[in-house]
C-alpha cells in the first residue's frame, strides 16, 4: 500500500492482485500517478475474461477494442512489474508497510525471448487429451484405431455439400467417439475450411458436445420439470453415490459418464433416464444398481467377443 502522505508526493510501491481489466486499469492509474506497481496474476497472462466477451454493457462497445490498448500500455509501463503465474502466499504488516510472500511458478519458457506467437500451443499434443497414460488407453480417442480417420473422413464427406454443415458433422463425430477429439476437429477445420477457433466456439456452446473424453455409456439423468417433481434429484444422488462421481464426470474405468439432460420426452413416466440408447421410465433409486450392473456385464461380453473376433 502506498505511503503517500507527505507533501502529496507519491512514495513507495503498491501491489495489485489479479490482472483482469479492473486490475490492469488500477495498475495503470496508480503507475501514472507515480507509484511503482507489482501486478500479480495467477494465470499465465494478464487480461482476464474481458477479452472473451463480445460486447460490453450498456454501450455495446467491442471489448477487445477497450482492453487491448490497455494491455499493451500495461506491459510497456516502466512503473509496472508484471508477475504472472504467481500466487500470493501470505501478507504481513499493516497499511503503509506490508510484507508479501509470493510464489512465482516456473513457466518453462524464456520470457525475454517469447513473442507470444502461439505456435507451441498449436503443436502441443496434450492440450485436450487426458494426461494420465492409463486413462488414455481406455478413452476412445480419435485415430486410436486405423479405421477412425476414415470414419471422420466419411462423416465429413457425407455433409460436405450442404450449407451450414458444421453442426451435423460435429454431431456425427460426437456420436462416433462420445466426445470431440482435438485431432478430429483439426481434420474438420482443414477439410471444411472453418477456423479451429470457430469450431471450438460452436462445440463449447452446445450441451451435447464434450471436449474431454467420456465413458462408453453416457448416463443421462433427466432433470426436466416432470422428472424433477417426481424425485429426479434423489435418483441423481443415488447414481452419484453408486458411480462415485458427480454429474459431468466420468468413472475412472471410462465405463460411465454421468450427465444431466433437460427432458427426454418421457415425462409421463417420470422420473426417467437414458443409458446409451436405452430409455428407462418410472424409476426409483433402488432400481439403479441393477440397471448399472446389467451394463457392466454386457460390456464384459462385448469385450470378449471383440478379443475373440
Amino acid at each position: 500500500m502506498g505511503n503517500g502522505g507527505q507533501a502529496n508526493k507519491p512514495v513507495g510501491k503498491v501491489m495489485v492482485v489479479g490482472a483482469g481489466i479492473a486490475g490492469v486499469q488500477a495498475s495503470l492509474d496508480l503507475a501514472n500517478a507515480g507509484f511503482y506497481v507489482h501486478l500479480v496474476e495467477k494465470k499465465s497472462a494478464i487480461g482476464g475474461v474481458m477479452a472473451q466477451l463480445d460486447k460490453t454493457f450498456p454501450t455495446n462497445d467491442c471489448s477487445m477494442c477497450i482492453i487491448s490498448p490497455k494491455l499493451v500500455e500495461c506491459g510497456r509501463h516502466l512503473n509496472i512489474d508484471i508477475l504472472t503465474l504467481t500466487e500470493v502466499e501470505g501478507i504481513q504488516g499493516e497499511p503503509g508497510n506490508f510484507h508479501v510472500d509470493v510464489l512465482k511458478k516456473a513457466r518453462g519458457v524464456d520470457m525475454s525471448k517469447c513473442t507470444g506467437c502461439g505456435t507451441c500451443l498449436e503443436a502441443c499434443p496434450i492440450r485436450y487429451e487426458p494426461q494420465m497414460p492409463e486413462m488414455e488407453r481406455m478413452a476412445r480417442t480419435a485415430y486410436a484405431k486405423a479405421t477412425d480417420e476414415d470414419a471422420v473422413t466419411a462423416i465429413i464427406n457425407r455433409h460436405r455439400d450442404k450449407v451450414g454443415n458444421l453442426l451435423p458433422v460435429l454431431l456425427d463425430i460426437n456420436r462416433q467417439f462420445n466426445w470431440l477429439p482435438r485431432c478430429a476437429l483439426e481434420h474438420v477445420a482443414d477439410e471444411l475450411r472453418i477456423p479451429l477457433a470457430e469450431i471450438l466456439r460452436v462445440a463449447s456452446f452446445y450441451n451435447a458436445f464434450s471436449l474431454v473424453p467420456r465413458g462408453k455409456y453416457i448416463v443421462n439423468v433427466c432433470m426436466g420439470t416432470g422428472c424433477f417433481v417426481k424425485g429426479a434429484p434423489r435418483l441423481l444422488d443415488r447414481l452419484e453415490r453408486e458411480l462415485g462421481i458427480k454429474h459431468g464426470q466420468t468413472t475412472e474405468d471410462f465405463m460411465f459418464s454421468l450427465e444431466l439432460v433437460r427432458c427426454i420426452g418421457c415425462c409421463a413416466l417420470a422420473p426417467a433416464m437414458r443409458v446409451g440408447d436405452d430409455t428407462f421410465g418410472r424409476l426409483t433409486p433402488n432400481m439403479i444398481p441393477r440397471i448399472l450392473k446389467s451394463y457392466v456385464e454386457s460390456y464384459g461380453i462385448e469385450e470378449e467377443e471383440e478379443a475373440a473376433g
Binding site: 432433470m223 416432470g226 422428472c227 433437460r262 427432458c263 415425462c267
Partner: peptide, 11 residues
Amino acid sequence: DEGDPGAFMDR
C-alpha cells in the same frame, strides 16, 4: 426443438 422441460407433445 421442444426445449421446454416436461413437455413432449411435439415428440
